[in-house]
Design a protein around this nucleic acid. Sequence first.
RNA 1: GGGGUCGUAGUUAAGUCGGUUAUAACGCCGGCCUGUCACGCCGGAGGCCGUGGGUUCGAGUCCCAUCGACCCCGCCA
Length: 591
Amino acid sequence: MSEFITKQKRSHYCGSLRAQDVGNEVILMGWVHRRRDLGGLIFVDLRDREGTIQVVFDPEQGPQAHELAHTIRNEFVLAIRGRVNQRPADMINTSMATGEVEVIADELDILNESSTPPFVLDGETEVSDNLLLKYRYLDLRRRDLQRNIILRSRVAAETRNFLQETGFIEVETPSLTKSTPEGARDYLVPSRVTPGSFYALPQSPQLFKQLLMISGFDKYYQIARCFRDEDLRADRQPEFTQIDMEMSFISEDDIIDIIERMMTHIFEACLGKTLTPPFPQLTYGEAISRYGRDNPDTRFALEIIDLTDIAGASEFRVFSETARNGGAIKALTIEDGASLSRKDLDALGEIVGPYGAKGVAWARVSEEGWTGSLAKFFDQEKRGLVEKRTDARPGAAILFVADTADVVHAALGALRVHLGNRLGLIDQGALAFTWITEFPMFEYSEAEKRYMTTHHPFTSPVAQDIPFLTTDPGRVRARAYDLVLNGSEIGGGSIRIHQSDVQSMVFEALGLGEDEVKMKFGFFLDALRYGTPPHGGIAFGLDRMIMIMAGAESIRDVIAFPKTAKATCLMSNAPSEVSADQLAELSLKII
RNA sequence: GGGGUCGUAGUUAAGUCGGUUAUAACGCCGGCCUGUCACGCCGGAGGCCGUGGGUUCGAGUCCCAUCGACCCCGCCA
């Protein structure tokens, strides 16, 4: 090994070299991305986090380095001293950022060898997720993944920059905290010192940030890790990160204004994209009736149209019975109906099936009238009424779903997104932010046979709805708001309850007994009595935000060490069994 | 908890109606090669067909169970 290079400092990142560096001596450290051994000349693409540069080993320029370079294999770690050389015009590689130049190696150190990697790191070969997750540290060498993780770091940094500048104070809250089984399932941590007692990992720092308002910090934030023991999805991990914020003496408008400025700052600084607040706002009711869900993708129109009155009066039995039973009949209109074949239309039932809908009925509109099995049930007058309301012109296809309102909305909401993707209605470069407001405070849970909060029990009801807390909880609106981006809920928050009597009424409406409340939230109700300022806040799912910013399809692509759909880590094999001694120490027994 | 897709050399895939020695590409190993950049050419090694059971004269292929990955519904205040 050459003593010379190892005592030197690295002078440049591989990926940073450009034409302006030509003629300079450089010292590079990096991984062998690819090796092309021509027998005489040897080319090595040397990679570091900034990119890749071609290194040339020429027997006439550096005989010893050239000799050693024969033994190089993929993913070896090298140190190279050499000179930056302008490539001749016909040898410029336009697909590389560094493609105008190369480094002629004078000296080579092999800093470490590498076993043959279990998969090719070219980023093009599809490799099974099992393997990628088992060797996550190798997968993380790939450019796309590195770019996502680096973007994530920048977004977190710019968030902090903005919030610090805006007068927010970052406070850390406990990870070992109290179980509050009102929301998601908790991850529990057994206490050694108090046998039989458990901490819970926080689902969010909700109560702590409200306590910080009571303490007078006025503007709080934290980039906080949260834990929820629920089943995973492509956009859901058991531990995830929130940009968590809380402010005193503010209204909905103040929060919306700060967040719009924060998002504008982050997207400008991290993506160079200019946002134009104010963002559009929809009430929850509007979102559901027009888009079928409270996280509408507003990058494309294709809105849901209510046809219950017209279609319910048609001869079609399914429709008339649905209307008579208090259900809903709603539709989507595809302007270019020809883009879906009859077979395509018939297959749409599979899209709505999982949401409980029995199928999608359709009709094609043409100059001559309607075609499709639905046509014969609609007379001339009803066709006219439907066409007018759906704005369906000749060539269009109208897609109907009839069921309870909830099922219709869920089905058409999903169908709308499916068609938006499938028919290419979505501008992939667009950033469609939408605020959703006026959420209902409670939803009735058939499973639990009681009302559950739509957001969480600390959300303030709209003042004039407070009397309904005891009489008609379903009518109470919450002072809550979500921020939706491109059809994903990226954040949600509310103005909180700051009066202990209102807080008690909400717990009551949730069917929680006095003793239960005291046990779970007693410390918080106590705190509310000592001069709680009016306050509110919001929390953003950082992972989902990064996902959208990076154009990633899975949340795993923006988390360095993610878990599988069964919440395991294939690399470290967590979770795993522990020794009998450890269990005994915790007074635990496995049954 | 429910539904779906998938599992074959190191990797990605093919494998017909159940029938001879399970193919290919990439990777790996060896040789040749001084302007390659997915280098090229020649040669070679490499398989518990996820696992267990069953049907059959015979199973990668059919059946059952099981494990694992991914996606969706439920769930996620």
